[in-house]
Each structure stands twice: as C-alpha cells, then as structure tokens.
Design a protein around this nucleic acid. Structure first.
Lengths: 335, 335
DNA sequence: AAATATGGTGGAATCGTTTCCATGAACGGT
DNA sequence: ACCGTTCATGGAAACGATTCCACCATATTT
C-alpha cells in the first residue's frame, strides 16, 4: 500500500514500453516527424500506460509557463466578470489555463500581482491597467506579451496593444439623445481613471454647443460606498442637473439608490443613462437606458491577440450601442 | 541590443556573485539555516542582481505547481463571482496564484478542465462540482487536495471536504415566512443539481403540515433562457400558485422577467423569494426578499481549507439569512 | 558503383530549482 | 589530548520534458 506514492508515469516509461527513445516519444506526441509504425507503437504505449505529459517539465525546458494571466479590478463587477468570461472562452479553445488576479484598481496590488506573474514566468498577460504605465516596464522587459483591455495605462505604454470599446461614439450618442430631450445640465459620474470617457463626454457636449461645466463631472473611487457618496453628493449639491450619465454599472447602481433615497424620481426629475448594460438594468425600476459595452467580446478579442502569434494591431475598437429603455424623459426643471 | 535575449538571472548567478554554493543560496532564500554573515552576503547579492526565483524550477523539483485551481459553473453569475472573489482574497494572503476554469455546469467540460489541472500538476483545487463524483476519482488518486464549495458532488465523494451554506435553515425560514403570510401553494424553481435545496424545501413544507406537490418543483438548466422558460411555464401552467421560491439569482431574475411579461404582479399576485442576495435585488421593483448566501465567505473558507495544511473538517456549514424586502405579501387567490 | 542527399532515430544536454549527502571546522565533554 | 556532536557548507543528483546533434540506413544523383 503506497497510497499516493505511485510515481507518475513519465515520458521515459512510455519510451521504454514502446521500445524507442524518449526523443522519439516527445516528437510523436508533439507532432514531429516519425514513421507510421513508430508513431503507432508510441501512441499505443502512451494509451496503455495512461500517460499524461507534465506541464512542469515542458515549462521549465521552454522557460515559460503556458497559459495566460488576467488582471481585473473587481471580478464581482458584472462588466469585468463578462470580460473574464470572454477571455476564458477563448483560452479554453486553445486549451490554455487562465490565472486570474484582482487588483482592486490599486496600483500597489497590481504591482504585487505582476510580480507573481513574472515569478511564474507567465509570458502572456491581459490586464485592465489600474496604475500608471511604468509598473509594466519590468514585465515588458522580461519579454511578456501584454494586452490591455477596456482601457490603456496612463501614461500610456505605446508597445502594448489594447482592446477597447468605442467610448467616444457611446458618449456621443448618449449626449445627443439627452440634448435631444432638451437637457442642458448633464452631469457625468465617473470612476477615477475613466479619463477617456470623460474626455469623450465633454467633447460630445462641446460639439453640440452645450457649455461644459467642470463641476458637473464628479469622480469616485472604485468602491460601492464611494460611488454612492459621489452620486448622493451630486444630486444634493446640484438640483439644477436634469440628466446624469454614469461611467459604469457600479456608479449606475449607486445613482439609482441615491436618487431613490433622496426622493429624486427617474426619469421625471432626472434622466439617467449608464455605461454598460447589465442583466439587472432591465429589472430596475425604471428599466435603465444604457450604453451597452461588449465586455465579453473585449475579453475574447484580447485573448485572441495574446494567444495567436503573428503581428498584432496596436488597437482594436469595438462598437458600443445605446439601448433605450425607460430612464430618460424630457427635461423638466427640478424646482 | 539583444532585446529580450538577456538571460534571466538564476540562483547560480547569485551563488557566484556571493561567493557561495547554490545550495546555500537556496537555503538562505527559503529560510533554512545559515550563518549570519553568509545570509547577509547572499541577500545582498540577490538584491544587487535583482534576482527573482523562478517558480518553474521549483515546481518541477517539488513535482507540483503552487497555486490553486478554481472551477465554477459561470463566472458571470454574481454568486460565483463573489465566491471566486473570496477564494482570490484568501489566496492573495498566501501569495498563491489562482487558476480559474468555467464549467458551464457541464460534466464534460468539467472533466476537460480537470484534465488541464492534472496536466499542470495543480495539487489544490476548489470546485463547485457539476458532474457526478466519479469524475474526481483520477484527481483524488493523483493526490490532489480537493475542496467542494456550495454543493457536494452526487453521488458524493466522501473524502472531499465541502464548504456549504445552510440551505436547510434558509429554506425553512423562507417557507415559514411564506406560510405565515397564508400561502399554501408554494412552488420551487430549481436549477438541476440543487437537490439539497429541493430536499430542504420539501422537508420544510412537510414539517409545517403543508401538502407537497411534486409538480410544484420545477427544474431548469443553468442558462438564462432555460430559467426563463421554466419560470414562464410554471406561472402559466399553475395559476393557483401564490408564492415562488427560486433556487438562485439567475432563476430569480427569470421569475421577475416572466412575471412582468405575463402581467403577474409581485407581490400582489405571487410572492417571490430568491436564494442568494445580489446587488440588484434591492434595485428591483419591487425590491426582492431573499435568502442571503455568504458567497464570499464560502470561497474564503474553502481556500483556507485547501491552503492551510493540517487536518480538515469534513464539512463547514455557513449560515444563510432571510432578508425581507418587498416581494412578499399576504396570500390572495390569483383568480 | 561511388558520392551525396534524406529522414528517422536515440543519447545527452539543458532548463532552475531543491535536497541529499559528504566534508570539514569548531566545540564541548570526558 | 582525543573523540563524538553539531553545524555551516558546497557538489551533485534529482524533477520531466524538449531539442540539438550525431548516427545510420535508405534513396537519389553523378
């Protein structure tokens, strides 16, 4: 009775059992050239011994861990969950395992996780960067294949491809829709780091000739609490805003709750649009008008970029789409 | 300019630079015994060369990959996302990477992923088992440290510890609450594989002397579509049910949508309770009464079990709690 | 028929670590 | 003074794969 003491069957066992050398076994198993007869003998022996090659040996020899690393701010956020799902779906079709890390949008934690990744010799990483781009220097120098998803680092890292949603277009249609309903005082509830979206928002306003007020873009940290505080603060401080655009679903959730708490009716008192369509947007009362983000596609494409060798585009931009539900109405002054 | 051609600094480089043998470096770095002076020299050399040990070499030697594997049915489901978050939080404090796989509740995909895990020589796995327990035989024989989360396999694998929520208690309080409101025809919308919850549900009914009708427990597959079909079917087929309990948040979502579509008012026409509290439950209209599940804790505890050596309990049961909101009302016949 | 290409094959080196074991120095007890 | 312990130390052997290279037997060319 040796319990788990039975040694794993190795390539050597297979070689011996098939009466060939280890090199031949390796070749057969990884599609190299071999005579038909040898191939068959090796395959038979492998099957007979229930041989499964060990990734450990292979990785060491190749000096790289297979698989891909994935760094997201918060796996609990449906957007990133869908993104992760896309990555996992693509990786599965390549048979590659995915190692997930949660950064909490904290550059320090991000660096820590990056450290773990290099220690593991992960040479393919997909990340939603939280910190500034410099954190990625050591990784890039180590020759790791990095792709950013949903946003670029700031300051940007030029060599890293990115898969993004078309924030510019999304913000534009949303702002056009709102101004079309008569709104002029439109606020943007942003998470720190959403400078792209903020820029797109103000650009869209400017293009329509609506005066932009800096005070109407409000920033929150990534947590639900911070989001709620920002939303409530905005609604209280500025009774003149009649429409709010939120930079993500966590902020949208916060806006709904804050409005409800402060007895601000949606869409009667304020119209609400949120970036990112999530399952609950439809269940909400009222159902939320959203700028749908192709989160799953973003993940999938990023994974493709990182897994498929060959030259890679510097940027992939995926369309986002305004989904009109019932959270926007014509402008009515709040007081 | 050799690009990424610069060789990684190895333990050998450190040894040479510190003027000691590799064995000594290894010992110093992994907390073995060494003289104070040597220790210092080694540490200095390691720092000077910016040495980071490679997990590859270590893993091969130890014949096991560090880190833990995590298998969940659907990372997009907020419950499993929270569970994963708990696992990740715990693993982070141990500095261990987590490899995530999505089974889609499909035994075949599960087996496939298990295969990947053994190939990687993962020796610690947390799983929400989808298939029957036999799929885990090869893993256990390989000496892998497995912990089940949220549910056990069926047929059960006795040697595997499990971290579970207290379904029995949750179902009991929910059913008591509903019968207290006068409901007698209570349906259960279950996902396939939720036999524990179904059993708890019927047991709770029986304990209260309410006749149980087999036809009132309806099964759906894991997808949103299947959930919707089951919910709509139930509401149409049985106009006499006045209360519905759903086995998870996906089914709850489906029930809300189906009710809305069929113009069945909640809670006027049917009362609704759902297993698992999710952020949108509060945003829903009406806010949903739920049986809160400690998803994050389940993940955390499971990770502790798998990471901390020492003897492990066969089962950990975490409390679940009825959170009353506004989706239940007194019984009123639907026609 | 001799010289040269071709293609399958196995031995051995290699990847970067841990760990076993032998060595030698220092030290305390008799 | 001698011997047995203890302790730090370095060399070398694993771990399990890939891959370079040399080798030999054919097939092809001159």
């Amino acid at each position: 009775m040796n319990g788990s003491g039975q040694r794993r069957t190795t390539i050597k066992d297979v070689a011996e059992s098939a009466g060939v050398g280890v090199a031949t076994v390796s070749r057969v198993l990884s599609g190299g050239s071999a005579s038909a007869e040898t191939r068959e003998r090796v395959l038979a022996a492998a099957a007979r011994l229930d041989y499964h090659p060990s990734a450990l040996g292979r990785n060491l020899r190749r000096r790289r861990t297979g698989g891909v690393g994935l760094l997201v701010p918060d796996i609990t956020d449906n957007f990133y969950a869908r993104l992760a799902d896309g990555v996992l779906a693509c990786a599965r079709s390549y048979g590659e395992p995915v190692t997930v890390g949660v950064t909490g949008d904290d550059p320090e934690r991000e660096s820590e996780l990056i450290g773990t990744l290099i220690e593991q010799s992960m040479d393919r990483v997909i990340a939603v960067p939280s910190g500034d781009g410099d954190a990625w220097d050591p990784v890039l120098r180590a020759g790791v294949n990095v792709v950013f998803a949903t946003r670029r680092a700031e300051p940007d890292v030029p060599d890293v491809p990115a898969v993004l949603a078309d924030d510019r277009e999304g913000a534009r249609t949303a702002v056009e829709y709102l101004t079309g309903l008569g709104h002029r005082k439109i606020a943007f509830l942003a998470r720190r780091g959403q400078s792209r979206r903020v820029a797109a928002f103000t650009a869209a306003l400017a293009a329509l000739g609506v005066p932009v007020e800096d005070e109407l873009v409000v920033h929150a940290r990534a947590s639900r609490d911070s989001a709620y505080a920002a939303a409530a603060g905005l609604l209280q401080r500025r009774p003149d805003v009649t429409a709010v655009l939120t930079g993500g679903n966590i902020l949208g959730e916060a806006a709904v709750l804050a409005a409800r708490e402060l007895d601000v009716r949606v869409p009667r008192d304020v119209s609400l649009i949120m970036f990112d369509d999530v399952p609950w947007a439809e269940l909400c009362s009222p159902p939320l008008t959203v700028i749908a983000q192709p989160a799953q596609d973003i993940g999938y494409r990023a994974a493709e970029l990182v897994l498929r060798q060959g030259r890679r585009p510097r940027e992939v931009v995926l369309p986002s789409e305004l989904v009109v539900r019932a959270s926007c109405g014509p402008r009515r002054p709040r007081r």
